[in-house]
Design a binder for these strands. Structure first.
Length: 625
RNA sequence: GCGCGCGUAGCUCAGCUGGAUAGAGCGUCGGCCUCCGGAGCCGAAGGUCGCAGGUUCGAAUCCUGCCGCGCGCGCCA
């Protein structure tokens, strides 16, 4: 259940038997070790527990780290302020307190001032090397995301799911898990029948010719027209329009016939279905490529459809499922407000739920996963509660480790996107607007200096950064209001701000190299060399940056554990801000000697942390932009 | 009606496994390029953390009730 805790205990034992604090890359743990040395008798807290208790004081003037003593109060039967006073005293008496320079009790807290040089030597080399934490073998986990329907267009709403799912995959991998990124295409169902009805019956031969590119999108338009027409007839019929009622009835008969034809494997219909379906899949593949998202496995609804029905029949025989009003389902009384979970329609055909059972079994048995994550919008919370409960009653123990990541919707300032009102913003429109905006406003000045290919590639990276960060920075519980003009504003808390900071930092190293000021590689490998150089760091901006850099992996771990990429977004934004403050206050290139080396190391460490952090979000980090 | 979620600065949001003086972006106003890239930096103004109780040494954070908004609620996906 908590593999990470086990890993960290292990790491602690190893570190404890190897007295080399300068090679320990976590500042918090280096400090925690000193705290443990100074702790009064009778307190049983591990280095890791102590490290986790450390927080930042509200005001940097108070100290670099703060240790709250509330947790010790019960064990010691004393008030936190008294404990803080004692602890501060004992820390001052330690023969070697490094990297702690000063400990002062302030009410229930012990505020710790660190030796900046010592702290920097602990934190920076690992970050500059791009080091990743070691992990014990993690779990085998599948993350299912994206799941677009074929025959429909891919719009900005789909983007949130894609960005979230991809980031979760990356975070879980970095956290030591073996992750299978899975997609699940909706290539069967009523929407297909509606689309094919219009395509086959309502288009002239000339109109039926698909365009050379974006055929999936073209198909999506056909679907929308069909859908809207049916809705219109429905309303007119409800209002008493007999002609509309006839048209509606005829259309419904036709879509039902198409559906039945497909189920019966009518060769002609299947051929059309397969051809059109591939138009959509090709569009999706192109989008995933542009976004830098890859999948390890692709599922299709069409492959679990029949199996789902077999499962329903099987579990009906076993008495797990029941018949109700001619349909089949299961009563999950745990969900009081809607206990019945429908699994097979009266007409004997399958539903979304039917297929989810078969899909889950496939995941469990063929892919042998320990844990299963579904990234699907929050409206389907009840559905997944039912799915997981049902799987458990079917005897799948893995149901305990199934998890729905429900995220809120992407809406427009005017309200939800509506295909009917024609207010859907296609992903391609966003991508193109963003890309040309980036070129026109920021990259045009490099025309001639940079190759056209580099400009195009950079524009893609920045546009992608803006879109992905916009989708990820907001908590999953919050709705995203998509306003194109606001999204095109790339200043402030945005993806391009992070990318820009990375590019600026990289540029500093480039400019320094031009005047033969380069980082001595020994600083990355030799703790003593690093320590000698970092002693030159004294500025508050340098201090802030070092302290923040120490947080990179704990934050990534927290984001992974809570399946919330937004946590990492917030951290990276604060890191970038700290770097820009440093950059404003502390010139690197004009520096000399130890200070130059220490600042080069600090810049390299920031580049490492930003590049890795952005990578965990699936955002590229250009070297210049 | 029942269920889930949201409500923090003019707007959009962090902070929510309880802890020190509630933070940021945008917008407004005012500053900063002799210096490594102004997609940047600094400053100012701006808040009864929806309301009312409760738990606690301590509540934006936990509990209860209410108000407002959104979403979901058997034969769609």
């Amino acid at each position: 259940m908590r593999p990470f805790g086990r890993m960290r205990t292990l790491a602690w034992h190893m570190a404890a038997s190897t007295p080399a604090p300068s090679t320990d890359h976590s500042l918090a743990r280096a400090v925690a070790r000193r705290l443990q040395d100074a702790l009064p008798e009778g307190v049983l807290l591990s280095v890791d527990e102590l490290a986790e208790l450390l927080t930042a004081p509200p005001n940097p003037a108070l100290g670099d780290l703060a240790f709250p003593c509330f947790r010790l109060a019960k064990a010691l039967r004393k008030g936190p302020p008294m404990i803080a006073g004692e602890l501060a005293r004992r820390l001052a008496e330690l023969s070697d307190a490094a990297p702690i320079a000063e400990a002062t009790a302030a009410g229930p807290y012990v505020n710790l001032r660190l030796d900046l040089g010592a702290a920097a030597a602990i934190v920076l080399p690992g970050s500059a090397r791009g080091e990743r934490p070691h992990h014990a073998a993690g779990e085998r986990v599948m993350v299912e995301f994206s799941q677009p329907n074929t025959h429909k267009a891919f719009h900005v709403g789909h983007m949130r799911n894609l960005c979230l799912g991809d980031a979760i995959v990356r975070l879980l991998r970095a956290d030591g898990n073996q992750v299978i990124a899975a997609n699940y295409f909706g290539d069967v169902g009523a929407h297909i029948a509606k689309c094919l009805w219009w395509y086959l019956d309502r288009l002239s031969d000339a109109e039926r010719q698909p365009p050379a590119s974006h055929r999936g999108e073209w198909l999506g338009q056909i679907y929308t027209r069909a859908h809207n027409q049916l809705e219109e007839w429905q309303e007119q019929a409800a209002a008493g329009d007999a002609a509309a009622a006839d048209l509606l009835a005829a259309a419904k008969a036709r879509t039902t016939a198409i559906l039945r034809g497909l189920e019966a494997r009518d060769p002609e219909l299947v051929a059309i279905w397969d051809e059109t379906r591939h138009w959509s899949l090709a569009d999706f593949a192109e989008i995933y490529g542009w976004c830098g998202v890859t999948f390890d496995h692709l599922f299709y609804e069409s492959e679990v459809d029949e199996e789902g029905l077999r499962l329903v029949e099987d579990y009906l025989q076993r008495g797990i499922f029941v018949e109700s009003q001619g349909a089949i389902g299961i009563f999950n009384e745990e969900i009081k407000h809607m206990p019945f979970f429908l699994l097979r329609k009266q007409d004997g055909t399958s539903l979304y739920s039917t297929k989810d059972l078969a899909l889950a079994r496939l995941k469990f048995e063929k892919f042998q996963i320990d844990r299963s994550i579904y990234v699907v919008d929050v409206r389907q919370s009840d559905h997944f509660r039912h799915v997981f409960l049902t799987l458990k009653k079917m005897g799948f123990g893995q149901a305990e480790r199934c998890q729905h990541v429900g995220y809120e919707m992407v809406e427009l300032p005017e309200g939800p996107m509506s295909g009917r009102k024609g207010t859907v913003i296609l992903f391609r429109a966003l991508r193109e607007a963003m890309t040309s905006h980036v070129v026109d406003n920021y990259l045009a000045k490099f025309r001639g200096e940079w190759s056209d290919a580099e400009i195009d590639d950079t524009a893609r990276m920045v546009a992608l950064g803006a879109i992905k960060y916009g989708m990820l920075a907001r908590d999953v519980q919050q709705k995203i209001v998509f306003d194109m003009s606001a999204w095109l504003d790339l200043e402030g808390n945005t993806g391009p701000y992070l990318q820009y900071t990375h590019a600026r930092a990289t540029s500093i190293l480039r400019k320094c190299a031009e005047v033969d000021k380069e980082l001595d590689p020994a600083l990355l490998e030799d703790p003593a060399a690093a320590r000698a150089a970092t002693a030159a760091l004294v500025e508050p901006q340098e201090r802030e940056l070092v302290l923040l850099l120490d947080q990179r992996w704990p934050v990534a771990h927290q984001a992974a554990q809570s399946l919330r990429p937004s946590v990492l977004c917030t951290y990276l934004y604060n890191l970038a801000k700290a770097f820009n403050r440093f950059n404003q206050a502390c010139p690197v290139k004009p520096s000399e000697g130890a200070l130059l080396q220490a600042r080069l190391l600090l810049v390299r460490a920031t580049i490492g942390a930003l590049a890795q952090g952005l990578d965990l979000l699936g955002i590229p980090a250009p070297d210049r932009m």
